[in-house]
């Protein structure tokens, strides 16, 4: 039970997290410029980009995004052609500085992700345990997962439009964590001294990251008008959200089951309707409802998106609300006074 904390590493972690917020904020601006002054997308489903575009993009984007990251100042905008292909019909070519803004945003987002990761790692090294033992660490890790989910998706699919939203969410989430949830690095509560934290909490973090990406798509879906817009078509949004949830749902299922296994070890029952368990269960049910709704006539589109957002809201409530409003066995948040 190492009680010693490396103060140098802990301080480094705190500094890195501030750098992360700044990088995410600038990346958000770049993505927003790209979104606002970039191509206009048709709102009608008929003109929506369909499978061929996705297929064409699939193989190429990984390489081009990497190249874009490497050759950012050169500004050939190599990340963009892939997306232009996915656009179906560009009405007019955007100015070249927009492409540069978009590419720079991608570079900064990757940089922010790396610094974010560095902060999480140094925190873990400073305390000698898994760095998600309290609410501050959990929120930071979840923002990292959301950003990671988005960036990995961007390697394979034309989802740059999500950048502004996800980096804003991650930046705000970390900002909130730093401002309101931060506690000094230290040992975790006794109950968390288990290898299950690596399994249960990690799975919850990864699933949450994916659900955040899906949630961002859901929000854009609802604010998007039918008319031509800089935002992607509703079908594209639904497809991305669905993809994220299809990956996130089994991981969430696993997280809940791992939690039950841990509860069986720690509390003497694998399921006891603790508030956190209840809301994890509700989240699971509603995401399951979303998957069923997608497969049922008459529920696609707006209804399915609404279901998805309800599930997302209960996920967020479980993360924040349950720790604040209810007292239960999961009171590990260590909220600062």
């Amino acid at each position: 039970m190492p009680a010693e904390v490396d103060p140098g590493l802990a301080a480094l972690s705190d500094q890195l997290i501030l750098v992360t917020v700044v990088l995410y904020a600038i990346a958000m601006i770049g993505y927003a410029l790209d979104l606002a002054f970039g191509r206009t997308r048709s709102g009608s489903p008929a003109k929506a980009a369909a499978e061929p575009a996705l297929a064409a993009v699939g193989a190429g984007t990984a390489a081009s995004a990497e190249a874009g990251a490497a050759a950012a100042p050169g500004g050939s905008g190599s990340g963009t052609p892939a997306e232009a292909a996915g656009d179906g019909g560009a009405e007019k070519a955007p100015p070249s500085w927009v492409m540069r803004a978009g590419t720079a945003a991608t570079v900064l987002a990757w940089l922010g992700f790396a610094v974010n990761l560095g902060s999480v790692l140094t925190r873990g090294l400073a305390t000698g345990r898994w760095p998600w033992g309290n609410m501050y660490e959990f929120v930071v890790a979840m923002c990292l997962a959301a950003m990671g989910a988005f960036l990995l998706m961007q390697l394979r699919y034309p989802v740059r439009f999500l950048g502004a939203f996800v980096s804003a969410a991650a930046g705000l989430g970390i900002g909130y964590a730093v401002h309101s949830l931060h506690v000094a690095a230290g040992p975790a509560m006794v109950a968390l001294n288990s290898y299950w934290i690596a399994i249960h909490v990690s799975a919850a973090i990864i699933a949450s990251g994916l659900f955040i990406v899906a949630g961002a798509c859901g929000v854009i879906y609802l604010i998007r008008h039918d008319a031509a817009d800089h935002l992607p078509t509703r079908q594209e949004l639904e497809r991305v959200a669905h993809r994220a949830i299809v990956i996130g749902f089994p991981i969430w299922t696993f997280a809940v089951i791992a939690g039950a296994l841990w509860a069986d070890k720690a509390w003497g029952r694998y399921w006891g309707w603790d508030p956190k368990e209840i809301w994890a269960f509700i989240t699971w049910i509603v995401y399951a409802g979303y998957l069923h709704a997608r497969a049922t006539a008459g529920w696609k589109g707006r209804a399915a998106t609404a279901v998805q957002l309800v599930a997302f809201a209960s996920l967020l409530f479980n993360l924040i609300g349950v720790n604040i409003f209810f007292e239960g066995l999961h009171s590990y948040a260590e909220l600062p006074d």
């Binding site: 509700i282 399951a288 497969a295």
Partner: peptide, 20 residues
């Protein structure tokens, strides 16, 4: 029917809320 199953599914989630 799927519609009933969906409604029951959402009721199930809703019914758990008072427990917290």
């Amino acid at each position: 029917s799927m519609r009933t199953a969906l409604i029951l599914l959402f009721l199930f989630a809703l019914a758990s809320v008072p427990g917290s």
